[in-house]
Design a protein around this nucleic acid. Sequence first.
DNA 1: CTTGTAAATGTTATATTATTACATACTGTT
DNA 2: AACAGTATGTAATAATATAACATTTACAAG
Lengths: 132, 132
Amino acid sequence: MEKEHNLSKNQKIIFDIIDKSGEPMKAYSILFDVQKKGIKAPLQVYRALDKLVEIGKIHKIESRNAFIACQNSSCQITKATAFSICESCENVSEISNSKLSKYLSNFSDDSGMKYSKYNLEFFGLCKKCKSK
Amino acid sequence: MEKEHNLSKNQKIIFDIIDKSGEPMKAYSILFDVQKKGIKAPLQVYRALDKLVEIGKIHKIESRNAFIACQNSSCQITKATAFSICESCENVSEISNSKLSKYLSNFSDDSGMKYSKYNLEFFGLCKKCKSK
DNA sequence: CTTGTAAATGTTATATTATTACATACTGTT
DNA sequence: AACAGTATGTAATAATATAACATTTACAAG
């Protein structure tokens, strides 16, 4: 069984918007969209985003300062994220490739670091943009 | 032979500061440090940073909005970067592991994406912080 | 049911990170 | 000398994120 997270009001509103959009959203664009629902300040958005990231419902695309809903059904892998990003159309999708995640989760070297988390971003051209 | 990049005045000043520090530096902290050398405005810093990233002399640590000098002697791998980040002391170092870079450079999946670049950040605890 | 505590909210102000727009100067070629 | 490309200088502003403080809600323990 996976843990059920009961989202609070703001968290629900903000998750729904990101989830419906299906693409990475920036904090202030979210803010703009939720103002009609009474969320007026950046901090309200950032607090919800922080929590949603923490529980794995969304991920931050670091190179874009944007947030996308987790596309791995059960979102157990907050600690192991990989994305592919098209540098032309900016389409982003989450990579779920068990070999890749196994490889990276088991990665270790002689540095003495104890790794507990990783984030990987691949860049390139998507199918559509390649053929243009 | 690798290509020699002749850095301009500002690029040299800013690269030297980052290189000497040996750790990730933030843009505005660089700005503060170089003001005695006549670089007064954020844009002057960002322009040099952009160029230095482009030619691979420095890398951006995306999750930290900070810049670190390339630690791979010849800096041929602007397009394949991996870092280890200690979440306790914030020490960052560049990972140069040929198996890892081979594995990731050759990665492909059935999405139709043509990958040309990646950036990987590992998080955890370094040797020192582990034993505290 | 009330008391305590953690989590969530609301609000204002401010800090931090990054870019736009425009004018000028330098560098190396033809 | 003329040109093209790169770099610089300066001011203003945009975009992203957090600090500080007051209040409220959720919910478990007594």
